[in-house]
Design a protein around this nucleic acid. Structure first.
Length: 203
DNA sequence: AGTGGGATCTGT
DNA sequence: CAGATCCCACTA
């Protein structure tokens, strides 16, 4: 068994987004391009959005934009924000239940192809934010509504054994706070990130 | 048919 | 802290 195992089943995502969001920390998002090139990044920051949550895009109605949020667990939901940035979500919970986890920051293991060599410090800021990570991984709305499975342009990998062990030993800790950039539902502490990580959106 | 605000980021 | 820049849900 390799250190990184592809996630094929998505049953573990078919739970409330507030449960899935912390569980996604430490998992790896993989962007695969048609030419075979891949970009990999460990998820270090997430936010949950759920039914009854005024900050959720599906709070009012089912619309063409938020349609993907109602889909089965394990599909993507990508939307355009402020006319210039995209945000990537993992759809969670049962089909018909509009909920998702916003991926807010990735820790890249290496500079993507085409990027100049950069110091470690800068590398860790490259995908530190929901808009920035979509820019680096070239994620846009054409990738919305698709399963995050094997042989897909976007897929997930489980936590490495080292990561899981560090969590159990308490070397890595999770921090839970309120969400960022919203004007409604600001009281809910539905944001999680890795403590002591310099690749999160806000240091 | 018009419009206001948005799960952001960068530079001043 | 202003500005960039586009979509779309909502109002009328």
């Amino acid at each position: 068994m390799s250190a990184n195992t592809q996630i094929v089943e998505s049953f573990w995502l078919a739970r409330p987004s507030t449960t899935v969001a912390p569980d996604l920390l430490g998992c790896t998002l993989v962007r695969q391009f048609p030419d075979g090139e891949t970009i990999r990044g460990m998820i270090v920051e997430t936010e949950a959005y759920a039914p009854g949550d005024p900050a959720c895009h599906a709070y009012r109605q089912r619309t063409p934009r938020n349609e993907a949020m109602f889909g089965a667990a394990g599909i993507s939901y990508v939307y355009l924000i402020y006319g210039m940035y995209h945000c990537f979500n993992v759809v969670t919970d049962a089909e018909g239940v509009a909920s998702a986890v916003l991926i807010r920051a990735l820790q890249l293991d290496a500079p993507p192809k085409g990027f100049a060599a950069i110091p470690e410090k800068k590398l860790l800021r490259l995908a530190a934010g929901p808009g920035k990570l979509c820019k680096v991984l070239e994620i846009d709305r054409t990738l919305s509504g698709f399963p995050l499975g094997a042989d897909q342009p976007l897929r997930l990998e489980h936590r490495s054994e080292d990561f899981q062990q560090a969590v159990e030993e308490g070397t890595i800790n999770f921090v839970q706070t309120t969400r960022i950039g919203i004007t409604k539902g600001i009281d809910l502490s539905w944001r999680w990130y890795l403590g002591n990580c310099t690749a999160v959106s806000q240091l």
